[in-house]
Each structure stands twice: as structure tokens, then as C-alpha cells.
Computed example of a mutant assay.
Amino acid sequence: MKAEWIKSSYSTSSGPDCVEVAVPDERHVLVRDSKNPDGPRLTLTPTTWTAFLPYATATPR
């Protein structure tokens, strides 16, 4: 799967929050650690990604 990776706006070059996302086609959303681009990645369905986003963007209590 060829994908164009987009880095999270919350990620910084020096911080621990380095997440990248790619959408290579209408059936897959890919997630990886930008500090380890050749490492493991998650492959999600768009439905699963949409359900996950509120938890990823929630402010810690």
C-alpha cells in the first residue's frame, strides 16, 4: 500500500507525541510512530478510526 503520511498537529520534533496517519484508499487508515517509520503500524477501517478519534483527542482529566 502506497500512502502519503500526515503528521499530527500535536506532534513536535522533540516531543513524545509523534503520530502519523495515512489513508491509502477508502477501506484503510494507517497509523504509525513517526520516529520509527519502518516499524509496526496499525491498519484500521474508517469506522474504527472514527470511533477512536474522540478518545485520541480528549483532554486528560
Rank of each mutant, 00 (worst) to 15 (best):
V31G: 05
R32T: 00
Y10N: 11
S34H: 01
V21G: 01
D33Q: 06
L42P: 10
V31P: 08
V31D: 03
D33N: 09
S9G: 10
D25P: 10
Y10D: 12
D38C: 12
P37Q: 00
E20S: 09
S13F: 11
L42S: 05
L30A: 09
R32D: 02
V21C: 03
V29M: 02
V31I: 10
E20P: 08
K35T: 09
A22L: 06
H28Y: 07
V23R: 12
E20A: 07
S13A: 15
C18G: 09
K35F: 04
A22T: 05
V19T: 01
P37D: 03
P16D: 15
P24I: 02
E26A: 14
D38A: 12
V21N: 01
P16C: 14
R27V: 12
S34C: 08
C18N: 14
E20H: 07
P16Y: 12
S9V: 07
V23D: 09
K35I: 02
V19G: 02
V29R: 03
G15L: 07
D33R: 04
S11K: 08
E20M: 05
E20K: 03
H28T: 12
S9Y: 10
R27N: 13
R41Q: 11
L42F: 02
S9W: 07
R41W: 02
N36H: 09
P24F: 01
C18I: 08
N36V: 11
P37E: 05
V19L: 06
P37I: 02
V31Q: 00
P40K: 10
V29L: 03
R41D: 03
L42Y: 02
D25W: 04
R41P: 05
R27P: 11
S13V: 15
P16R: 13
S13C: 14
S34F: 00
R32G: 00
R27S: 15
D25S: 09
V21P: 01
L42H: 04
P37M: 01
S34T: 04
L42M: 04
V31W: 00
V31F: 04
D17A: 13
E26Q: 13
P16V: 14
D38K: 12
D25N: 14
D38L: 10
E26V: 13
H28Q: 14
R27C: 13
G39E: 04
S34R: 05
V19R: 03
R32L: 03
S9A: 10
V21W: 02
S11W: 02
